[in-house]
Simulated scan of single mutants.
Amino acid sequence: MDSRTKLLRAVFHQGFRTPDWRHKQPPPVVTVDEFFAGNDDNESIAVNLSDHPGVGFFHERLKSLQGRPDVKSVLVNIYDLDPIISGGWPYAENVHVLTSASEEQIQAWAADLLSDGAAEGWPYGQPEAAQLPEGHFKWWWFSWD
């Protein structure tokens, strides 16, 4: 099974539904490895950047974040599946990091990722697939609006 098919199965297993306020269900999340394996679609993440650095830029930086001792998890939300109709990759609107790092450090990560900044929590609610924070760990999210 190819990487794209595995990704789509992970998404559909969570019951994909485009986020809206009628259903009040958060979009599904997948791991960094699931999202980026085989992904060469620059429009799959941070599509609003005028000078997009390429999907590999985000993969490299998010993998690096994932390896830090103050980070427990890095997840990518799947916001839109329309691109798959034409053979593209699902669209990710946000990246979520479960960390005990300081807000100053998290905002530095956001800048490194060319994000508009980081915010604590989940913009559409925490999905069931995301682990609950423990101790000093909190969920933060990055977006590219």
Rank of each mutant, 00 (worst) to 15 (best):
A111S: 15
I106K: 00
Y124H: 13
A129P: 03
G15N: 10
Q131V: 14
L132K: 13
V97F: 05
P90C: 10
H52C: 11
D145F: 13
D20M: 10
G117R: 10
P90F: 10
F12W: 15
Q14S: 09
W139G: 00
G54V: 13
G117D: 11
T18C: 10
A101C: 11
E103W: 06
W89K: 03
V97H: 01
Q14T: 07
G121L: 02
R61F: 04
A37N: 10
W141V: 01
Y79D: 07
E60Y: 12
N94G: 03
Y124N: 09
Q131M: 15
D116I: 15
Q25N: 12
Q14V: 08
R4T: 08
V11Y: 02
G88Q: 07
I45N: 00
R4C: 02
S86M: 09
P83W: 07
P53D: 09
D80V: 11
L132H: 08
D145I: 01
F16L: 11
S115C: 09
D82Y: 13
F35N: 04
T5D: 13
P19D: 09
W140P: 00
L98I: 12
F16M: 10
V74R: 09
A46E: 06
G88W: 04
T31K: 05
P133E: 03
Q105S: 13
P27R: 00
P19K: 05
E43V: 08
P53I: 11
W140I: 03
K72Y: 01
T99R: 04
D2H: 13
A110Y: 05
I85L: 15
W109A: 02
I106Y: 00
W141F: 14
L132V: 07
